[in-house]
């Protein structure tokens, strides 16, 4: 459904993303992991249309969308959340979500009904009339998710929706994400909380210094020498193995 083909992004002398390739089939939760500064969010921004790639092509359901505006991609069914939450602070929770719902429902009553339904699904049902600016971090993350969900996406890009949440909040939100997948939405998620990645993702891509270095089921990828070295430095895999042997 989504094919990212040799996409690069150069910021001056910095190659933020270097010919990354990624392909998603409909259904399932796919992870995108990598150390800080690997280019994950830049890649998301290129898929959702906020940054134009220097090179490469992006196709969605067979159509080349490389040059399309973000709002056109949202119409096609690509939803995204922002790593740094971006609530419409002056509006209530319900009004926030309704902006997303208006994409497919022109009438106010329908959009509001849709917003309420989505709010309940992500656990914001009791906060509908609160100003979005007054939500807790966990609440704002849920709001990001709800707004994106209200656009009824086929592909949902989640940029660290779990970051900044405590373990019990993470436990609460994981079933929500699973529920979204079960309704047939394909999810691509950037995540640092490895417990969640292991728990949720069927497959993960690993990005390091702008390059896609590994791909596969999470357990396999986490044992991959290149992945361990990307996170912990050169030679770390060998050291870990030696230490493991010593303790064993």
């Amino acid at each position: 459904m989504l094919a990212v083909d040799g996409v690069s992004k150069r910021f001056g002398g910095l190659m933020a993303v270097d010919s990354a390739t990624l392909s998603l089939q409909p259904g399932g939760i796919i992870g995108l992991i990598g150390p800080n500064g690997a280019g994950k969010t830049t890649l998301f921004s290129m898929i959702s249309g906020f940054i134009a790639p220097t090179d490469g092509r992006i196709r969605f359901e067979g159509t080349d969308i490389t040059a399309e505006e973000p709002h056109r991609r949202a119409e096609r069914g690509i939803g995204r959340t922002f790593q740094i939450v971006q609530p419409f602070a002056g509006l209530t929770v319900c009004e926030n979500i309704a902006v997303g719902a208006y994409l497919r429902h022109a009438k106010r009553a329908e959009a509001t009904a849709k917003a309420r339904e989505v709010a309940r699904r992500v656990g914001l049902g009791s906060e509908l009339d609160r100003p979005a600016g007054g939500l807790t971090v966990a609440g704002r993350k849920r709001l990001e998710l709800a707004r994106a969900l209200a656009t009824e996406p086929k592909l949902l890009l989640l940029d660290e929706v779990l970051a900044g949440l405590n373990p019990s909040e993470i436990r609460d939100i994981i079933p929500v994400i699973r529920g979204i997948r079960d309704e047939g939405v394909t999810i691509l998620m950037i995540e640092h909380v490895m417990q969640a990645v292991m728990n949720l993702c069927e497959r993960v891509y690993v990005l390091a210094q702008g390059r896609m270095i590994a791909e596969g089921p999470p357990t396999v990828v986490c044992a991959d020498t290149r992945v361990i070295e990307a996170y912990l430095g050169h030679g770390a895999a060998a050291r870990l193995k030696a230490e493991g042997a010593a303790h064993g």
């Binding site: 906020f50 949202a74 922002f82 971006q86 002056g90 509006l91 009004e95 208006y102």
Partner: peptide, 26 residues
Amino acid sequence: QRSRFGAQLVAVRENEDAAKALGVDS
């Protein structure tokens, strides 16, 4: 104030990038 146009207009005022991500042609 009560229409889709108004909701999208206010969304652009509050946060243009977030509005675009939700399909608003800002």
